[in-house]
Simulated assay, not measured.
Amino acid sequence: MGEKIIGFHAIEEGLKKASSGSVLYIARGMGGHTQDLERQALLSSKVVVKKIAKVEMDRMVSQADHRGAVLDLVSSAQELGGKVQNLSVKDFCKNLHDDDSALILVLDEITDPQNLGAILRSADQFSVSLVVVPDRRSAHANSTVIKVSSGAAHYVPMAQVTNINREIEYLKSQGFWVYGAAMNGQAVYKTTFPNRTVLVMGNEGKGIGQLTQRLCDHMVSIPMTGHIDSLNVSVATGILLYEVRRQQATK
């Protein structure tokens, strides 16, 4: 029917945004948390609850770890009433007042849905104003991303764009300073972030593309003393977002 969501937290958030005609499937005999989801769904006039055999649910989600519950939304995640939608970067900027601060996260070809989901969870926690992802060679807000984000993907504003470099150039024209994450960048604690900041995170393997790096005003890094050469991109994103927000809170 539409986007199928698994994971208890993701389903709880999905139920809040579900359109009329959505279905919550419950596997018979599971009990526990599935009963809480069923009660939440029954409070909504928009969601129908159907109980099916576990084997049928296994087929429905291709043997994924559903834990006895699947929410089948009548609309895809991109069409929900929440903030999982394709915004325009220009429209976002038009709604900013001259003295408004903003934190924009640009993801340069983050291809792993697990990483994107974890990044969106951090983006929600640190009140990122907008997440920008490219149309091509990038993960998008599918059911895996929504599950990993624990439903945060419903709340984080996103812009899916054709050319991130063009969008970065536009953001710079609107008073944003652009900071790219790279191992050879300046230590993040030595960097001062302005009220309008764009943070660019690169691909899991190759990092930020060369053309995109040239558009960055500064490159920043996270000082490390461990035995491996880098952090997972989702972990690094959370650390950098925290530092930007920490600085902005003290101004």
Rank of each mutant, 00 (worst) to 15 (best):
I5F: 01
G7F: 05
H9N: 13
E12D: 10
E13G: 02
L15R: 03
S20V: 12
S22P: 02
L24R: 02
G29S: 06
M30N: 07
G32T: 05
H33K: 15
E38P: 01
Q40C: 09
L42V: 09
S45A: 13
V47P: 05
V49A: 08
I52C: 03
A53P: 12
A53F: 11
D58V: 09
D58N: 15
M60N: 03
S62E: 14
D65Q: 11
L71S: 08
L71A: 06
L73W: 03
V74R: 13
S76L: 12
G82V: 04
G82I: 06
N86F: 02
L87P: 00
K90F: 13
C93W: 06
K94F: 05
H97G: 15
I104N: 04
V106L: 10
T111V: 13
T111D: 09
T111G: 05
P113S: 02
I119G: 04
A123S: 15
D124Q: 11
V132W: 00
V133F: 00
P134Y: 02
A141F: 14
N142C: 13
S143R: 07
V145L: 02
K147S: 15
V148H: 00
S150A: 15
G151W: 02
N163M: 05
I164Q: 01
N165T: 09
R166V: 09
I168Q: 00
Y170E: 02
Y179E: 10
G180N: 04
P194K: 06
L199H: 01
L199G: 04
E204L: 07
Q213C: 15
D217G: 10
D229Y: 12
D229M: 10
N232G: 05
L240C: 04
Y242V: 06
Y242S: 14
E243Q: 14
V244C: 07
Q248R: 04
K251E: 08
